[in-house]
Design a protein around this nucleic acid. Sequence first.
RNA 1: CGGGGCGUUGCCUAGUGGCUAAGGCGCUUGCUUUGGGAGCAAGAAAUCGGAGGUUCGAGUCCUCUCGCCCCGACCA
Length: 589
Amino acid sequence: MKMSQVFSRTLREVPVGAESLGYGYLVRAGFIRQLGAGIFSLLPLGLRSIRKIEGIIRDEMEKIGGQEILMPVVNPADIWKETGRFYSIDREMSRFQDRVGRDMVLAMTHEECVTDIARFEIDSYKRLPQLVYQLQTKWRDDPRPRAGLIRVREFTMKDSYSFDRDYEGLKKQYLAHYHAYFRIFDRCALPSIAVGSDSGMMGGKIAHEYMYLSPIGEDTIITCAKCGYTANRQIATFVKEHTSEAELPLEEKFTPNCATIEELAEFLSIPKTKTAKALFMMGTFVDSTSGEEVQKLIVGIVRGDLDIEENKLQNAAKANALRPAHADEIKAAGMEPGFGSPIGCAKDVLVLVDDSVAHANNLVAGANKVDYHFLNTNFGRDYTGEVVDIASAVAGHLCSVCKNPLTQSKGIEIGNIFQLGTRYSESMNCMYQDEGGVRKPVVMGSYGIGVGRLLACLAEEYHDESGLQLPISAAPYQVHLVSLIKDTAIAEQVYKQLEDAGIEVLYDDRKESAGVKFADADLIGIPIRITLGNRSLKEGKVELKLRANPLEIHQIKLEDLTKDVHKIIADLQRAIHDSMYEREVGDEI
RNA sequence: CGGGGCGUUGCCUAGUGGCUAAGGCGCUUGCUUUGGGAGCAAGAAAUCGGAGGUUCGAGUCCUCUCGCCCCGACCA
């Protein structure tokens, strides 16, 4: 490609709003342009990178038996009503009516659609297992798009769906994805880890997220350095140590100006572990067949030194959504904000008690009266509720597997895999007959990768102060040919020679100064740069530099150019391949 | 959805009630230059996000509204 003809141009300055460096470079280098909040166009350079990444994904999906399909973005709402997600998913899914008033949705994922297809195609165990995948546009009306391509509303997703006769089969396909995903990220040269995760709106039980660790990430990952336990904080567990002592009588105590646990512990001169705190949330519960919504007050109780993990709370409550409860809603249920506890609360309140509290004695808790607390509250004696795990794991807590102190880090979710089970096949009647003629629900899995987000993460990982340095597997071109000579005939010839040899070349044929050309080459960051200048050409040579290693200059004879470039490309590709490694995966997945 | 910030030419900015809205980059034309964002000269390009209001006079003040960004809520 001749640079004089490239549709996009480069920008000298970072446009306003580009906070993260990688995003700023993707815009400056002309890979992407923003149309609206969380809505981007891919320009030729950006699309070439995306196509490279998609190529890797396709390759790895085919290797594990995936067959590519393409499902529609617009779905009739009927199938979403069948699974209940038409009602349970909030405004993140956009809905509209067609010309005759039928409910339609913009599918934000395709379990419903693919299950609808599968219930037609699959009727016998002989037609299982199956694996289909697609690369398709998703629209998710995210309330908070941010950081360029990291979190957008419209994006391309690779989603695959597996169908098996039983959980053994599902486990196989899940494991195949587990490895394939690592191979995909490795081939893109993006460092990644897999963490245990919440299944969220997908349903099902077992799920993993793939994370690119980055300080700009929005997810918190809890890790044990000793045994290798990793999990999203949303579900991470930890050891809650407790001692038991004889129960003491309940006692009301005047505790002025003690609305927080810190103030209370200081006022009473007790450790925070001897207190219990309450979090009041209003939960929305949706009937998945009628779509009827019910609101219910939820009280979460956790030991004073811990915090409540809202995701765990929502799961424990089996609520579709949570929001902080208003003061009047709390009071209406017989409790007092700031001095609240479930002691004496209304019957219809859902009380969820963390095991840290359920297994402790004589905790100080709110007396549901301003400026008063109870001393010596005991779960079971003074109040009841469901015992659950709703506490948030933080660095320093002990690993629930090996009791080693946990650490935490920030990550960006680049992919996820879910064992769906029969959640969709049962609600949509996707059945097969086994050898004995017994009808059984197909066992499903669902697996996603955000393609644009992957590129965004690569831009975060690979850049310096001059621009991008994308790895050769994801860079839009392999070679950037910078011509500084007046004689265009020679440059054209070198360009043609490289292209004819099957090398992807971006040829800077513009009538610009050397400085401009070099600056743009650095910005776009094609891995290999070849400079045609009078200095070297006098000796029949050209200069070659690697973007990642700008200090090392190679002088290459013109007649060896194609051969040498092929070798360097192969070396760069091999370096990525050599850094891949097989990860140990046990049966615990 | 709550809190905060910002909308001035293609991009980045200046402009705190007063003359024809200023500069840098980019763009066009000409000449010069050609190994790290060149020089000189001449140009084009802005209904100052939109609507309403206050005022003799509004980019500037007020109200409403739209958009974008950040923090939070949220989120596969």
